[in-house]
Each structure stands twice: as C-alpha cells, then as structure tokens.
C-alpha cells in the first residue's frame, strides 16, 4: 500500500517537470518566433482571401509603408529596453524630414549627415534630462514632443516644404529595390540587425538591458547607467532621423501634417508587437521588424479583405490588445500598473 504511493509520487513529479519544461520551451519558442508567426499567419490569410494581393506586389506595398514605422519603432524599442519611453521620437522624425527638405538643395550630400547629427543631439537632450534630472521619461518626452512639434511647424512655416534640388541623392532609397523590397525597408532591416548585435554582444547593449531588468542592480554592478541612458535616447533620435530620410525618399517633401506626422503610436505599437516589454529589459530588434510589418499590414489587410474602412480602427485596437495578450510574458505575482 505504502510502496505504491511512494512509487506514484515521483512519477507524478516527473510528468509535472517534463510538462513544465515543455511549457518553458514552448514559451521560449513563442517569445523568439511569435511576432514572425503572427505576421506570416495574417499575411497568408490575406493572400488566401485575396490572391490578387500577392500578384499586385502586396509585400512591396507593406514593406514600403513599414519602413519609417520600423525605424521609429527600433529607437522606441531601445528606449523601452532601458525601462523608459520616448514620446518625442516621431516629432523628431518630422522635424528631421523638414530640415532635410530645407537643406538638401543648398548642402547636397552633406545635408543628411548634418540632419542625422542634429536629430541625434535632440535625442541626447532627452537622455541628458532623464539621466541627470531624474524625471519620469513619459512626462519629459511628452513635453519635448510639444517643443519639437512646434519647431517643425515654425521651421516649415506651417506649409509643405519641397526638396528644391539634389532630390536624386535620396529618392533612389525608395524607388530602387532588392528582390522587390524597397531599399528604405532594407535600411530598416540593417538597422535592426545592428541594434540586435549591439544588444546581444556589446557591453553597451548588455548594460542597457541590465538597466531595464533591474536598475538598482545595474548601478551596484558599476554599469554606467546615466551614460547608457543618454546613448539609448541618442540612438532613438538617430533612428528617428533615418525614418525622416525614408519619408523624404518616399514623398520628396515634408510638412508638419503630411506623411509621417502620425508615426508615434504605430511606432510604439510595432515595438510592442515585436515582443518588447514596456517595463523594460526585454526586446529583440529582429522581432520588431515583424512588429512593424504587422502594424503596416493591418490597415492594408482590412482594406484588401474588404472590411469597411470605418472598421479599421476597431480592428486595430482589438489586434493590439490580442497580440500583447498573446505575447506578453507575465510572472504570477508581478504588480501590473
């Protein structure tokens, strides 16, 4: 009698353990591949429902509209990774695009470099204030969002600024393609790969993730948290500038209400769809690529499938909540704010 009990108990334990291990492995796979699976599944559904979508260069359309979202989302993911947020990066994109449109004529090839330097500095200003004044990043970047937005409005004179000359330096990014994928999107993928490499293999990247996972722990481990925060925000500004370049490549003009004026929320959504945690310490830039593709696909897919244009927002909102519910890793006793 007693021996049977003794015999069964470890057996139960073993099945429990192996089940837990299986669940762990499945979770690990889902975290690594979830965003890609979701995008591919949605893309296939659209392709099956509307075969003409593939023939009509469907992926090219999705990729080209995903490019600026991807670049903004990469910067956002790097900032989210240190446990902060950057609400100002999309307004930096727009300001960068307007500055580029203004200076491309007179400065020529130097202009993109100057603009990238400037937007990186804008990002660094955010970083310096967050790191040294120790203010909540949500409120701070909400404030600088207003400042950059007004700057874009004033610099552009509240009208559309067209590139006067030298547009040929930038437009090939949009018009030429590698295997049907526009160069703007390729630029985003390269940036994502570099960001992934940095987070995975460099001290700077590992330090950033350490800040996001446990800032006190990072401070006590002699991670230079303030310097790394400035680096993260500078990179967010830099990526926003790259997004501005893709906008000029696509539109040849920029205005404070034109293309790219509503990148903030799609950028955050793409970072989150890519499995980035908003509490910090978890991000994979390669998955952000699929996050951005998903964000770009939703409006195109709803239109292609024939869901009324009016229902797009509703579908978008439900998908945001569903995808995060599916991809978020939660611990049992964590406090969710």
């Amino acid at each position: 009698m007693t021996s049977t009990i003794i015999a069964t108990e470890p057996a139960v334990d073993i099945t429990k353990q192996s089940r837990a291990r299986l669940a762990h492995r499945a979770g690990k796979f889902w975290r690594a591949g979830g965003p890609a699976v979701i995008f591919v599944a949605m893309f296939l559904v659209v392709a099956i429902l509307t075969p003409a979508f593939l023939g009509g260069g469907g992926f090219t359309i999705v990729a080209s509209s995903a490019a600026p979202i991807l670049l903004v989302a990469l910067g956002q993911a790097l900032v989210l990774n240190i446990g902060s947020i950057d609400l100002s990066n999309a307004s930096i994109t727009l300001l960068g695009a307007i500055l580029l449109a203004l200076t491309l004529g007179p400065l020529g090839a130097v202009s993109p470099l100057v603009v990238l330097l400037m937007v990186t500095l804008f990002g660094a200003v955010n970083g310096v204030i967050v790191a040294f004044a120790q203010v909540p990043s949500f409120a701070l970047t909400l404030g600088t969002f207003g400042i950059f937005q007004a700057a874009a409005l004033v610099v552009s004179g509240a009208t559309t600024v067209y590139v006067s000359q030298n547009a040929g330096l930038i437009t090939p990014l949009y018009t030429s393609a590698v295997a049907g994928i526009p160069l703007t999107f390729v630029l985003g993928v390269v940036a994502a790969a570099l960001a992934w490499f940095m987070l995975r293999f460099t001290r700077v990247g590992q330090g950033m993730t350490a800040i996001g996972k446990n800032e006190s722990g990072a401070i006590f481990s002699a991670v230079r948290t303030r310097k790394l925060k400035i680096v993260a925000y500078s990179l967010s500004g830099f990526m926003a500038g790259l997004a501005g370049i893709t906008i000029i490549a696509q539109a040849g003009s920029a205005s404070s209400t034109g293309l790219g004026s509503d990148l903030l929320l799609p950028g955050i959504a793409a970072a989150i769809f890519g499995g980035t945690s908003i509490s910090g310490g978890v991000t994979n830039p390669l998955n952000v690529i699929f996050g951005a593709l998903t964000v770009a696909l939703v409006p195109i897919a709803t239109a292609v499938i024939g869901i009324a244009a009016q229902a797009q927002n509703l579908v978008y909102g439900i998908i945001i909540i569903l995808i995060v519910a599916l991809t978020l890793t939660r611990s049992r006793n964590a406090i969710i704010k």
């Binding site: 204030i129 203010v135 701070l140 404030g143 600088t144 969002f145 207003g146 937005q149 007004a150």
Partner: peptide, 13 residues
C-alpha cells in the same frame, strides 16, 4: 505647444 511643452519640462524638473 512649444511653450506648454517647455513648462511641462520645467515643472517636472
């Protein structure tokens, strides 16, 4: 929006 933003930044700092 720049002035509101600047005041927000000044207030939290």
């Amino acid at each position: 929006s720049a002035l509101s933003g600047a005041i927000l930044v000044a207030a939290i700092v």
